[in-house]
């Protein structure tokens, strides 16, 4: 990996961290929220100036020191009312906690309903501009899959299906073709099909349509991330030959999603091994019709509050269990 690649990878990690922080602060007054994010950004830059990081792991250690976005947001929200920490405040916290829980559940329910039944992708409120009805399809050829997903999602488009091809000229994980073509005018919420390189060698995967091939594993799985925000959302497709592919995203309280990584792997009666596109080695997964359990997921789901169980619960009815 050359210097520029590393720099852009590290910048990506910081940006993801800040984006996550910004989302976690959604309840805060917008100008104070912007100021807070900007100060944390400057703080990270200052830390990096004093103590230059050589790789992703060192950067993540540094960000750990700054604090998890959820913790910073919790401190911000707790400080928000500025009342003394005694007496009625406890009750206030409980009430606010309950209100937050209700909002989280409600927005999750809505997000799930949208994801499952409506072609319009979930969109944010507040600082996010309202979506127009159509968008120009960006050129995502040459990006890795998560970057392509983010690019599409930011325009209100969805990745409907990905397929892999052997490509002598592209490294694994890089988008080699797309449909619709770049520059086409497409309706918001429409799904695009991306073809991703599986590298110069290996077996080409025959892709059938998602609905026809889905079996054993459901196509939408939700991780209850405990008390923290965001929750996680896994979308995956099982092919008839037993291979699966999909992506793992943050699912924010406002219904927006943001891809963490995509993965592909194979299934074998109750267990699966997934290889994430971006970082780390294979993740072993056990699954049933109801849920899916990731082994060692904390290395991937860095900002989760209670990831010890790493369990994604699937609910056929669309409600989070």
């Amino acid at each position: 990996m050359n210097r520029t690649d590393l720099d852009s990878e590290l910048d990506g990690v910081v940006n993801e961290y800040l984006r996550h922080l910004d989302h976690a602060l959604a309840k805060m007054d917008s100008s104070r929220r912007a100021q807070l994010v900007e100060e944390i950004e400057q703080h990270v830059a200052d830390l990096r100036a004093i103590n230059p990081v050589q790789n992703r792991a060192e950067l993540e250690n540094l960000l750990d020191r700054v604090g998890r976005p959820d913790d910073i947001a919790a401190a911000a929200l707790e400080d928000e009312d500025g009342t003394p920490r005694s007496g009625p405040r406890r009750r206030t916290i409980v009430i606010v906690g309950l209100a937050v829980a209700v909002v989280v559940l409600a927005s999750l329910g809505i997000a799930i309903a949208i994801t499952r039944h409506n072609p319009t992708p979930p969109r944010g409120r507040g600082h996010v501009p309202p979506p127009a009805h159509s968008a120009t399809m960006p050129n995502v050829v040459g990006m890795n899959l998560p970057a392509a997903q983010v690019a599409l999602q930011s325009l209100g488009l969805q990745v409907g299906r990905t397929q892999q091809v052997v490509s002598p000229s592209s490294p694994p994980g890089i988008v080699v073709s797309q449909a619709p073509a770049a520059g086409s005018r497409v309706a918001r919420g429409s799904e695009s099909i991306l073809t991703v390189s599986s590298g110069p060698s290996g077996t080409s995967v025959t892709t059938t349509t998602a609905s026809a091939a889905a079996r054993e594993l459901p196509s939408g799985i939700y991780l209850d991330g405990g008390s923290g925000t965001p929750h996680y959302y896994v979308s995956l497709t099982t092919q008839s030959d037993g291979t699966i592919s999909g992506s793992l995203s943050y699912l924010y309280q406002d219904g927006q999603t943001s891809a963490v990584f995509s993965f592909s792997g194979s299934t074998n009666s109750g267990t699966a091994t997934l290889t994430p596109s971006t970082a780390g080695g294979p993740i072993s997964v056990t699954y049933s019709a109801k849920q899916m359990q990731f082994g060692e997921c904390t290395q991937y789901l860095k900002f989760a509050q209670s990831m010890a169980q790493c369990t994604f619960t699937y609910s056929p009815g669309g409600a989070l269990q």
Partner: peptide
């Protein structure tokens, strides 16, 4: 967590 000071400053 160093970051938690900023909400306090705010």
């Amino acid at each position: 967590s160093e970051g938690t000071i900023y909400p306090l400053l705010s």
